[in-house]
Design a protein around this nucleic acid. Sequence first.
DNA 1: AACGTAGCGGAGGGGTGCCTCCGTTTGCAA
DNA 2: TTGCAAACGGAGGCACCCCTCCGCTACGTT
Lengths: 193, 193
Amino acid sequence: MASADQLGEVFARRPKRADARRNYDALIAAAQEVFGECGAGASLEEVARRAGVGIGTLYRNFPKRRDLFEAVYVEEVRALSASAADLADRPPWDALVAWLHRFVAYVGTKRALAEELVHDSEVFRSCRTEIYAAGEPLLRRAQEAGAARPDATFDDVVRLVSGIMAYQFFEPAQRDRVLAIALDGLRHPATSR
Amino acid sequence: MASADQLGEVFARRPKRADARRNYDALIAAAQEVFGECGAGASLEEVARRAGVGIGTLYRNFPKRRDLFEAVYVEEVRALSASAADLADRPPWDALVAWLHRFVAYVGTKRALAEELVHDSEVFRSCRTEIYAAGEPLLRRAQEAGAARPDATFDDVVRLVSGIMAYQFFEPAQRDRVLAIALDGLRHPATSR
DNA sequence: AACGTAGCGGAGGGGTGCCTCCGTTTGCAA
DNA sequence: TTGCAAACGGAGGCACCCCTCCGCTACGTT
C-alpha cells in the first residue's frame, strides 16, 4: 500500500542510537505541545527549548520545518488509525460515533498543522488515506445498516465533525449537544428518533 | 444598550481630518485582507504597507495590536448585524438559514481574530451581544413555528455552523452538502423530511 | 578500558517584526 | 493666503527567530 510506505518511511527516519532516539522522541512530544498551543507558526527554538535539546539537534533531525510537521502528524495518525480496530464489535452507528469522538480529540490541536501540510505534501496525502481507510468502513457499515443517511460521504462527515470541534468549548455539555445536533443530521431520515 | 455603547465607542475613535480618515479606513481594509490571509499573527508592517501608509500612522491610530483587531472586528459585526433586518419577511426557517449563510461568510476569515479577542475584551463581548441580538430572534421564530428543534440554543447553532465553515472547501457543492447535514440536525424532529 | 564516530548544542550572522521618536508635510480655519 | 496644530512616515533600537557551522561529548563497539 502506497500510504503505508509513506508512513513507514517517516517512521524509519527515527535515529538508532539511544540518546539520539530519546531526543527525537522528546522533540516530537514537545512539538505536539507547542504546535497545539501556538499553531503552526510556533517557534522552533521554543520546541527545542521545551524538549531540553539544542537547536542544532532539532535541525539535524528535521532539516526543514515541514519535516517536523510531518513527523508529528504521522505520529497522531498512526494512533488514530489504530484505534478503529477495536470498534469492530460495536453496533454500526455506535461504532461510528465512538470513532468520531476519538477523531475529534485528534483533530483538536492538529488543525493548524493540517492546513500547513495540505499544500502539496505526499506524506499528508498518505495520512489522509490512512485515516479514511480507518474511518470510512465505519460510515459504510452504518449506512448499510440503515443508520446513517446514504448521501453523505466520509469526507463530508470528517469536515462536519472536525470543524465543529475545532472550536474551544468551555462547557463540555454544550460540546456534546452541538455534536449531537450534527450527528442527528447525519442519521438516516427514516431511523432518526 | 451597553453593546451599542461599546461599538459606538470604537466607531467614535475614527479621526476627523479628511486625510486621517482616509488612512484610518485604508488601514482597516488592509487589515481585513491581511488578517484574512495570514491569520492573527500577521505582520502589522505588512498591513501598513498594503494600506500605503507609514508604520507610524498605523500605530497612532491603533496603539496596541488589539486595537486594530477590535476595529476590524467591529466593522464586520456592524455589517452582519444590520443584515438581519431585511430577512424579517421571509418564512421563519428560510430566514434563519439565509442569515446563517451570511454568518458563514462573516466567520470565514474572522476565526483567528475571534480567538485572539476572546480573552477578556469588553468590545468582543459587545460584538457577541450584537450578533446574538441579530440572530437569536431568527432562531426563536423558527422554533416557535415548529421548524427548528426546541432544545438548541443560539450559541449551539453559531458554533455548529461557524465551525464547519471555518474549513476551506475547495468544492462549493460539498460545503452546501455538509451545511445541509448540519441544518437537518437542527430541524425539528417532527418536521424534518 | 580505549577509541572512533554519531550525535550534541549553542554561538553567531542574517532577517524580520515591534514599536518609538521626531523632523517634515498638509488640511483647514481664520 | 497664511499659520499652526494635526497628521505623516520611516529610521533605528530592540527582540526574536531561522538556520549553519564546528568544537565538544558520550555511546556502543572491540
